[in-house]
Amino acid sequence: MVLPDKTIIIQGVNFLVTVFVLNVLLIKPIREIISKRKGLMADQMEKIDAFNANAAKKVEDYEAQLASARKEANEIRTSMKQAATAEEQALVSAAGTEAAGTIQSARAEIKVQVQGAMDQLTRDVNKFAEQATGKILGQA
């Protein structure tokens, strides 16, 4: 059996002093460093979360702007197509009108030429008929 004597009290005091000195010199600074690291890590995580949220918002804004630009481009393309179709119809109509005018003037010219040819043929037929009659009747 162990009998307590005065050395046990000295060892107890020595133990308490050692724990106190270790706490002051070693444990407290380590705890402070760990606490600072936790704070730094929490701050870094907040910054990372804020950055990710900001990046997600920017991507969302970019996609919205891209969709808007595509919609605007489609509207511009549609309006240009409609304008081109209207211009094409106007050009075709103008060309049709011009062609109709050209055809009418050509028909009138042909009619005049046909009438002139008919008049010339009538004169020639009359002339040939007179010559044939003259030859038949023996006049010249």
Rank of each mutant, 00 (worst) to 15 (best):
Q115Y: 14
M80Y: 14
D5Q: 09
Q120T: 15
F128R: 05
L3C: 03
A132T: 06
G138H: 04
V2Q: 15
Q115L: 15
I30M: 06
A129P: 03
T97Y: 10
I10G: 04
D61I: 03
A42M: 05
V21M: 14
V17I: 12
I10P: 02
E87N: 01
A132C: 07
F51E: 09
I76G: 01
D49Y: 08
E72G: 03
A132I: 03
V112A: 10
S105L: 09
E72L: 00
F20K: 00
L26F: 15
I76A: 06
M41A: 11
A90C: 00
K57Q: 08
Q11W: 15
V19Q: 07
A84E: 02
S79I: 00
E72T: 00
M1N: 08
Q115A: 15
G12I: 02
A42L: 11
K36S: 07
D119W: 10
A67P: 03
A55E: 01
G39V: 04
G12T: 06
N54Y: 10
S68P: 07
P4T: 00
A95H: 01
M118T: 15
K127F: 05
G39T: 06
G101A: 09
T85L: 13
L3E: 09
I110R: 10
R77N: 04
Q139P: 11
G96Q: 10
A56K: 00
Q89R: 13
I34N: 03
I33C: 04
I9Q: 11
Q65T: 04
P29W: 01
R123S: 11
N23F: 13
L26Q: 05
D61R: 02
A86E: 15
Q44S: 04
A73I: 01
K6P: 03
K28Q: 11
S93N: 08
N74E: 14
E72A: 06
Y62V: 05
T133Q: 11
I9S: 12
D43K: 15
I76Y: 10
V24N: 09
Q113H: 02
G101K: 01
F15H: 12
A83Y: 09
D43M: 06
A86D: 14
Q11C: 10
R77H: 07
I136F: 08
G134D: 15
T18G: 07
A90D: 06
I48F: 09
N74G: 07
L16I: 06
N52W: 05
I76R: 04
N54Q: 14
I136M: 05
L25P: 00
V17M: 11
D124N: 13
A90Q: 00
G39K: 06
A42G: 01
G12V: 03
R107G: 02
K111L: 12
A69H: 08
E32D: 08
G138E: 12
D61A: 05
E130C: 03
R37V: 03
Q82Y: 10
A90R: 00
M45Y: 07
L25N: 03
E130K: 15
V2W: 15
E63Y: 13
L121A: 06
A69I: 01
A108S: 10
